[in-house]
């Protein structure tokens, strides 16, 4: 049985301009420890789909099952990392942020801080354990957010364009770091991005989505060996293939 089943999920909502089909009939499965990227232009419903999986939105059709159990609302089987740096709690240190989930679980102070420190080591920020978020750079804040979402050991990590607001060089570093973290932890990850190169660099499999209505257009496995070389011919081939799908998607919409 797959770890995650996205089964014919739809979400429609009303706007002043009429009823909009944000997501229509999205269906795919995920195995444990798989790294899946949802790729598409803005408005294709990829973030909406991620928010449904996270339980922040309730689908108007279909359902999502994790480990065979239907998802309703948010839960600690899922960890979430957002794009916005402001997601960290400014009144807590990096360590305090990472320990938050464990604290909610009722774990004692000493134990949870030890685990939180391990998680900060994983993202190479153990030296900044006692820093407040406003003293950290954007990239560091996102690393703390990743550590925070991993700390209470959810079954799946959901990431919504976590590096989109970073400069290009920092973003490359972050992608390498995330690939390392994934290799170390073997976590199941769903990663939303509009950046095709990022998807090819990170994913085992890419789900291409197109807008109006937001539908799954294609599923493309990326079988390249890791660590991947973004300048290799195969890498660029994959990128081209994805861009083709997206190019068709946008021309059809227009």
């Amino acid at each position: 049985m797959p770890l995650i089943e996205v089964d014919d999920v739809s979400l429609a909502y009303d706007t002043p301009a009429g009823r909009v089909q944000g997501v229509l009939g999205a269906t795919f499965n995920m195995e444990e420890s798989e790294f899946l990227c949802l790729v598409g232009p803005s408005g294709c419903g990829k973030s909406t789909l991620l928010n449904i999986i996270a339980g922040f939105l309730t689908p108007t059709g279909g359902e999502i099952r994790i480990g065979g159990k239907k998802v309703s609302g948010h839960g600690m089987d899922r960890g979430v990392v957002f794009q916005d740096f402001a997601q960290l709690f400014p009144w807590r240190t990096a360590l305090g942020n990472v320990a938050f989930g464990l604290e909610m679980k009722g774990m004692g102070k000493e134990e949870r801080e030890e685990i939180a420190l391990q998680q900060l080591k994983l993202v190479k920020l153990e030296k900044f354990a006692n820093s407040y978020p406003h003293h950290l750079s954007g990239g560091m804040q996102q690393r703390v957010a990743i550590a925070r979402a991993l700390a209470y050991n959810p079954a799946v990590l959901l990431m919504d364009e976590p590096f989109a607001a970073l400069d290009a060089m920092t973003r490359d570093d972050m992608q390498r770091l995330l690939a390392d973290v994934w290799k170390t932890t073997g976590k199941t990850i769903i990663y939303v991005t509009h950046n095709v190169a990022e998807a090819v660099y990170l994913a085992d499999r890419v789900i291409v989505m197109t807008p109006h209505p937001g539908t799954v257009k294609a599923e493309i496995p990326i079988m390249l060996p890791r660590p991947r070389d973004p300048l290799s011919l195969e890498f660029l081939e994959h990128q081209k293939q994805l861009l083709n799908y997206l190019g068709q998607g946008t021309s059809k919409a227009a």
Partner: peptide, 29 residues
């Protein structure tokens, strides 16, 4: 209080009572 703090806290298992104490109050301080 930023919606993203509330979402983050809920995703990490904060119930209403602890959401209030650990997020809403310091966020509104």
């Amino acid at each position: 209080v930023k919606e993203i703090w509330v979402r983050s806290a809920q995703a990490m298992g904060a119930d209403d009572k602890r959401l209030f104490r650990y997020v809403i109050l310091p966020g509104a301080l």
